[in-house]
């Protein structure tokens, strides 16, 4: 049981978190942020374990992890 919050404005859509997620529940959003990047979003809140892998891999430190 966990949750992540992504500061979408800070995200550059690099996809490193998507690759790091063991549950494969992060994807790029269909919309863009003000910088023009498609930000990462959590696709399945219930499946998130709060493992923090996405946080560890995020170069822009825009993910908060809750457990």
């Amino acid at each position: 049981m966990g949750l992540i919050k992504i500061r979408e404005e800070r995200c550059k859509g690099c996809t490193l978190c998507i690759n790091a997620c063991p549950k494969k529940i992060i994807a790029l959003a269909p919309y863009v942020n003000s910088k023009g990047y498609n930000p990462a979003t959590l696709t399945d809140e219930k499946a998130c374990t709060g493992c923090g892998f996405c946080y560890a891999f995020c170069p822009d430190i825009c993910i908060e992890v809750y457990r």
């Binding site: 946080y55 560890a56 170069p59 809750y66």
Partner: peptide, 27 residues
């Protein structure tokens, strides 16, 4: 639920200039 990982206080909370996917941010 508790916040377990978030932006460290030892960094200034501003966007970094690095390119998307550059690992400088991680380091």
């Amino acid at each position: 639920m508790d916040k377990v990982s978030s932006f460290p206080k030892t960094l200034v909370d501003v966007p970094m200039h690095y390119c998307p996917g550059c690992t400088h941010g991680i380091i």
